[in-house]
Design a protein around this nucleic acid. Structure first.
Length: 557
RNA sequence: UGGGGGCUCGUCUAAUGGCAGGACGACUGACUCUGGAUCAGUUAGUAGAGGUUCGAAUCCUUUGCCCCCAGCCA
């Protein structure tokens, strides 16, 4: 991973270091704990990064353990996607495991607790269990089945496992304290009956453990020293510790951090799925989504994502990171690494009246001013060009330095040209062509007499131009915190996608491949989309360049 | 209103009893063959009230606000 480590250690690193100093642990092992029930999004990256960083920092190990305890929701398809996305991020794990690898051993451990009188089979219905749990302010009521004999519990558990009872008819519960102020400790359910085939164990099991009766045990079995998770698990920590203490097994330590909240991003898997199902987006890899696949298609690099997470830091504060912060990281990375190209998104014909008909000159253009190694390329120049509609005004507003009648500008890497007039459509009066003259002495872009121009325009030679489609993206939502709104339709930005089908790009782009990233000069960063066809490349705008003029113009109204 | 967690510039984050600093954003300006990049500068914060201390964001007391938990989800 190319991201630098934060200069100051975060509170997790400090805690781990202390555990090593005190001798509580002699090594470090963390785990990435995805549930294979959906695609990874940027929120997961924070957890992944912390686990990765912590292991790496102490020269420890990182396990990738799929939390596949609920066969009703999980699929192999997601396992593969998660692995692929994790690798794409540049995070490698030392060992790949599954919660389901431990089903047998976990069952043995459950029997141990039953034998110690610390777990019992409850015959209550889900509704009864729920109704007797109590409330936030009132204690729960003990189950009438709570004090069954060990023998009866053992027999019932065995029969649950053998599939003798219907779903929902019985559960195994830990026997702790129905009056505990922490609701998690009120005889939590350990196993439920689920007659659903599992993506890895098939039909072998019809009871499946719940998170609380699986995660900590798996951590212990794997010798995970630090089980790093998000804040919402804090209240589960007493139970996490209770189980390992009663079992007298290796005591992994759970440490919580606050999850990532990003403005304008949707993180809820449920709602993400809904967006896909409703057709609001075209799939899990829609470039407007902050899924890793969406970000990848959009053109965001793994380095930018990791850098963003690192810059954001790890704390336990509730926080909302501004999307602008993420965009800054994206620009930072892309600026350094993206080759520059010229592309015209909304073409306007520019005719150089005094330029020889039929002449073509190949101008030398720098590939990346930020990277001397990137070299140069040749770009064809001729009498008829396309420029950006925004780069010409018949009547220039204040502070407008681009092309307007009588004004001289530079065509990037080519010549200085002066606008002489326009050609109009006789019926509509619309400007169809802009005319100019060039100064042959300014080849390459510099005037021998030292005169300066205030604007440099990008352009594409009409006869050499490659037609292209360009997709411009804006925030998918109209509100900063879309996850908080249930009615999606209310908050969808109808202008989140703008497709420009009549663009022209410079000829070198004909050889680009899907996934290639470029900076289109003066516009933004773009990534070639897999929808591209040989005759017509498609580019996604990853993020725009900072646009000072747009800001000035906005202020002018 | 039970239990738990949290509160530092607009946002994110440092400062571990000793100059409240950085990043992003915003705003100036310089420079520029990208109105990009870069550089310089400005703006702006310890939730409130008490207390301990030579000295408090940090320790104590107290108040307020925000978040999480009543799945046989994770």
């Amino acid at each position: 991973m190319s991201t630098e480590e934060p200069k100051t250690a975060n509170f997790i690193l400090e805690a781990v270091a202390e555990d090593l100093r005190s001798g509580r642990f002699t090594y470090v092992r963390t785990r990435l704990p995805p549930e294979p029930n959906g695609y990874l999004h940027i929120g997961h990256v924070k957890a992944f990064y912390i686990d990765y960083l912590t292991a790496k920092h102490f020269n420890g190990e990182l396990y990738l353990r799929f939390d596949d305890t609920n066969p009703a929701k999980e699929e192999t398809e997601y396992v593969e996607a998660i692995k692929e996305d994790t690798l794409w991020l540049g995070i490698k794990w030392d060992k790949e495991t599954y919660a389901s690898d431990y089903f047998d051993r976990l069952y043995e451990w459950a029997i141990r607790l039953v034998k110690k009188g610390l777990a019992y089979v409850d015959d209550q219905s889900p509704e009864e269990v729920s109704a007797t749990r109590g409330t936030l302010t009132e204690p729960g009521i003990e189950s009438p089945y709570r004090n069954r004999s060990v023998e009866e519990n053992l027999d019932l558990l065995e029969r649950m496992k053998n599939g003798e009872f219907p779903e929902g008819s019985r559960v195994l519960r830990a026997k702790i304290d129905m009056a505990h102020p922490n609701i998690v400790m009120r005889d939590p359910v350990m196993y439920r009956i689920l007659k659903v085939p599992h993506h890895r164990t098939g039909t072998k099991w019809c009871i499946y453990p719940l998170y609380d009766w699986s995660h900590g045990q798996n951590d212990s079995m794997e010798g995970i020293t630090h089980s790093l998770c998000s804040q919402e698990y804090i209240i589960h920590r007493p139970l996490y510790e209770w189980f390992l203490e009663q079992l007298d097994e290796f005591r992994s330590r759970q440490i919580e951090f606050s999850r990532l909240n990003l403005t304008y991003a949707m993180m809820s898997k449920r709602k993400l799925r809904k967006l896909v199902e409703l057709g609001v987006v075209r799939g899990w890899d829609d470039p407007r989504l902050t899924t890793l696949r969406g970000l990848r298609r959009r053109g965001v690099t793994p380095q930018a994502i990791l850098d963003f997470i690192a810059r954001t830091g790890e704390t336990r504060n509730d926080s909302w990171v501004d999307m602008a912060q993420f965009e800054a990281c994206i620009r930072d990375d892309l600026n350094k690494h993206s080759p520059r190209r010229m592309a015209v998104t909304r073409p306007l014909k520019l005719v150089i009246d005094n330029y020889p008909d039929g002449q073509v000159e190949w101008m030398e253009a720098v590939n990346n001013p930020e990277d001397a190694q990137a070299g140069t390329r040749k770009v064809p120049f001729s009498k008829v060009l396309y420029i950006e509609q925004d780069d010409f005004r018949e009547v220039p507003p204040p502070k407008y330095h681009r092309l307007y009648p009588g004004n001289e500008v530079r065509l990037r890497y080519a010549y200085l040209v002066t606008c002489t007039g326009v050609t109009r459509d006789p019926s509509t009066g619309e400007v169809t062509e802009v005319h100019c003259t060039y100064d042959p002495a300014t080849r390459g872009g510099d005037a021998p007499d030292g005169r300066r121009v205030k604007a440099t325009l990008h352009w594409v030679s009409a006869q050499h131009a490659v037609p292209a489609e360009i997709r411009l993206y804006d925030q998918l939502f109209t509100v900063e915190r879309p996850d908080e709104i249930e009615d999606l339709e209310q908050i969808i930005n109808p202008h989140s996608l703008e497709v420009l089908t009549d663009c022209f790009v410079e000829p070198s782009l004909a050889e680009a491949k899907p996934g290639d990233r470029f900076q289109f000069e003066r516009i933004g960063y773009f990534c070639m989309d897999p929808d591209s066809t040989p005759g017509k490349p498609v580019f996604n705008r990853t993020v725009s360049l900072k646009d000072t003029w747009a800001k000035i113009e906005q202020k002018q109204g």
